[in-house]
Computed example of a mutant assay.
Amino acid sequence: MAAEETVRRSGDIAQGPRKKSRRIAISNKRQITVPKEFYDYLEMGTEANIELEGNKIVITPVRENSDDFSEFILKDLIDEGYGGDELLQEFNRRKNNIRPAVEAWVKDAHENAEDVESVSDLFDEDE
């Protein structure tokens, strides 16, 4: 039985997540191949992150981004008293929540922008 996987790309915010499922082989060297459709959809490069969540393996593309907020997250967690394994788990949880939060913010901005006819409307003073 194939496990369901959620596949989302930042350009598809309005449509929401697509669910896709595919059964794949595991080689005798424990290697897998990401289906081309998934690879292309997620705009994967040459590296991916792999996480064990309960009885699931989650693979996500590595995105080189200097705006990942890691230092801010770590500082907050240390200030809140986290340490050891608990620090790592909470760091990963918060870091993984950044992208969905930004996507929701962008979606909201696009929806609110429909009421604006031009950029100058944003800066005009009420008369």
Rank of each mutant, 00 (worst) to 15 (best):
E47A: 07
F91K: 03
P17T: 12
S27F: 08
D67H: 14
A48F: 01
N97L: 15
Q31P: 00
I50Q: 03
P61T: 06
I78N: 11
T46C: 07
K29W: 10
R93D: 10
E43Q: 15
P35T: 11
R63F: 10
G16I: 00
G11N: 13
A14R: 07
N97K: 14
N96C: 04
P100G: 02
I57T: 10
R30S: 09
R9K: 15
A104P: 00
V58S: 04
A104Q: 10
E43N: 15
F38V: 08
D40T: 03
Y39V: 04
R63I: 14
E43V: 08
Q89E: 13
G81W: 02
F91Y: 14
I59N: 00
A25Y: 08
L77R: 01
N96H: 14
K95S: 08
D12N: 14
D76S: 12
K95Q: 14
G16R: 00
I13E: 09
K107P: 01
R30I: 01
V62N: 05
D108I: 02
S70K: 09
K19N: 11
L88D: 13
D68F: 06
P100H: 01
R22P: 01
G81P: 03
V58T: 04
I73T: 01
E53V: 05
P35H: 05
D85N: 07
G16L: 03
P61N: 07
N28C: 06
L88W: 08
E64Y: 07
E71T: 11
L42Y: 02
P100F: 03
V102S: 02
E71C: 02
A101N: 06
T33A: 13
S21G: 14
A14N: 08
I78E: 13
G83L: 10
P35G: 12
I73E: 03
E111N: 13
N112E: 11
E64L: 12
S66A: 14
G45T: 11
Q31V: 07
R93S: 07
G11M: 11
V102Q: 06
F38A: 10
L74W: 01
S21A: 15
I73L: 09
E53C: 01
R23K: 14
N97F: 04
D108K: 10
N49I: 02
D108R: 15
V34K: 05
I26T: 11
G11L: 12
I32Q: 04
I73A: 04
Q89M: 12
Q15C: 05
I26K: 01
G83V: 07
S27E: 08
F91D: 01
F69Y: 12
R8L: 15
D67K: 11
T46L: 07
E111D: 15
V102I: 13
A101T: 12
D85K: 06
E103M: 03
S10F: 13
Y41W: 06
I98C: 03
D67M: 12
H110R: 15
R8D: 08
W105N: 03
G54R: 00
N96P: 06
R8S: 13
V34M: 04
D79I: 06
A113W: 11
Y39R: 10
Q15R: 09
N65H: 06
I98T: 03
I24P: 01
K36T: 11
T60H: 05
S21E: 14
K95L: 05
K36Y: 07
I26A: 02
V34R: 04
K29N: 13
G16Q: 00
